[in-house]
């Protein structure tokens, strides 16, 4: 690539970046460096935002009627949703941590299958039985996984804990007596930063003996 071509490439990249940040134009004196824009234009986003629908979601055995935009994720509904009666859904156990299906902090069950709620559109959750961490216990009776997490101190800050609890329940529903390697496989979609993994593995083993 010649120097001239390089420079042209640079300027195209720069424009796409500036457009990304706002509606600005490039100032006259610029230092040649390569920039890569990664933000979408405002127009595309606002168009999308205008499309809404009222849907029904079955969450922890209760039906919620709720108005959502097509872009609204299931996680947004669980945490921030307000139903058509004006009540907050307020199921904040599932956490948004990475916002792109990398960490498992928002794991919920959709028809007993573990799903990242940040990666599922609310509209796609229609017709499914959604179970969040708040729906894992039977009233005041904790699930064996929850009992075992407490017993083994399988948590520190606890922010990832709801996701791990739900993934562990899903794992044991599929595999009653997982080996350590199978536990690691089953929970490989969840991330903890405090480093509670060893005690989580112990907890799942204990829970598997009780189920």
């Amino acid at each position: 690539m010649s120097d001239k071509e390089k420079k042209q490439g640079t300027e195209i990249s720069r424009r796409s970046f500036i457009k990304g940040v706002g509606t600005g134009t490039v100032a006259a004196t610029v230092v040649p460096t390569i920039l890569v824009g990664d933000q979408n234009t405002a127009e595309a986003q606002t168009d999308e935002a205008t499309s809404t629908a009222v849907i029904q979601l079955n969450i922890n055995g209760k039906v919620h009627e709720i108005e959502v935009e097509s872009r609204t994720t299931l996680l947004t509904v669980l945490r921030d949703g307000i139903d058509t009666n004006g009540n907050n859904v307020d199921l904040t156990g599932a956490k948004l941590i990475c916002d792109k299906g990398e960490c498992g902090g928002c794991t919920i069950l959709a028809d007993d299958k573990p799903v990242y709620a940040c990666m599922m559109l609310a509209m796609d959750a229609q017709g499914k039985q959604i179970t969040t961490v708040e729906g894992i216990a039977d009233g005041d009776d904790l699930h064996p996984v929850q009992e075992a997490f407490i017993k083994h101190d399988a948590m520190m800050c606890g922010f990832c804990t709801p996701g791990f609890v739900v993934s562990s329940v899903a794992l044991l529903n599929e595999n009653k007596k997982p080996t350590l390697e199978e536990i690691k496989d089953g929970l490989s979609g969840n991330t903890c930063r405090c480093g509670t993994y060893p005690f989580i593995f112990d907890a799942v083993e204990t829970a598997s003996e009780k189920m």
Binding site: T92, T132, L142, G158
Partner: peptide, 14 residues
């Protein structure tokens, strides 16, 4: 422990 495993523990984010 119980609040953390049931999702009841409220963080600032919640």
């Amino acid at each position: 422990g119980k609040d953390k495993v049931t999702g009841k523990a409220k963080y600032t984010y919640d």
